[in-house]
Design a protein around this nucleic acid. Sequence first.
DNA 1: TATTGTTATACTCTATAACTATA
DNA 2: TATAGTTATAGAGTATAACAATA
Lengths: 147, 147
Amino acid sequence: MNKRYMRSIRLLAECYHAFSQVSDAHVRTLGLTPPQFDIIATLGNTEGMSGKDLGEKTLMTKGTLTGVLDRLEARGLLTRSMNPDDRRCMIVQLTVSGQDLFDRIFAPHVEFCRQPLAGYTEEDFLALERELAKLKRHLDSAGIEGT
Amino acid sequence: MNKRYMRSIRLLAECYHAFSQVSDAHVRTLGLTPPQFDIIATLGNTEGMSGKDLGEKTLMTKGTLTGVLDRLEARGLLTRSMNPDDRRCMIVQLTVSGQDLFDRIFAPHVEFCRQPLAGYTEEDFLALERELAKLKRHLDSAGIEGT
DNA sequence: TATTGTTATACTCTATAACTATA
DNA sequence: TATAGTTATAGAGTATAACAATA
């Protein structure tokens, strides 16, 4: 049983790494680090969100998030503004230039990363999705806290 | 179709992240960083291997590997020695102390990380394994080069 | 010439904890 | 007291490229 477990987990890591290598290398050609792309992708086509939400979605701790946001803000890709309803919170939003970058790179990036799976059928994706959703359900219910 | 693809990939990332959070946090309580644990786990119960092999298995570039190995060597957990057959290569091996560390922490770590999947049956693992193996086959055949 | 590994540089991310300001 | 976010610190990994030794 432990053997089956280890084989599955090893495969999970290998798949993720293999995918990341393709994705991260492409992201860097776009002039962003993977965490930076993650932020841009999360904020794209939204009204903006708090740093807390952003941290939960991207799985970054708040200290890390501050640094990543600093660099993106310095490049004029996003802004931080006060939330009048709760002045402890900020609202992080893409600027016009940031949304424009998102529009230019997001879809092509997805398309680029999808290439290795060009041979996948609808049924292949469905089967994969089913197993991963089940796995995620178990992992989540074990009570993993973000941040 | 792209929607199915994105859902699967998002799930892959989420599962890996959720698992990593459990695993990495536990690894750090053992006094190792995740890359360091990766090296120890790869070298455990082997005769040792070249830096090249180690880099391929752990997906680290050679520059990164040098740094990680430096820190482990400084702690007396592994040694680097010359390969007499090809003096460009080194042979990286756990020391007695390194193998001892491996023996003490590896199985408990696996057991710890397995907890969230305590409810998984043999069939659950088999189905997951099947889908991930298929995914890996496709990702690999796309020609991803390590290093 | 190609390969293995080290060195050097500069940057980014990370963990951690103390701190500020709000609530 | 608790929460959102910043700051500070120190370390670790990363990309990249130049380099030495060997093949």
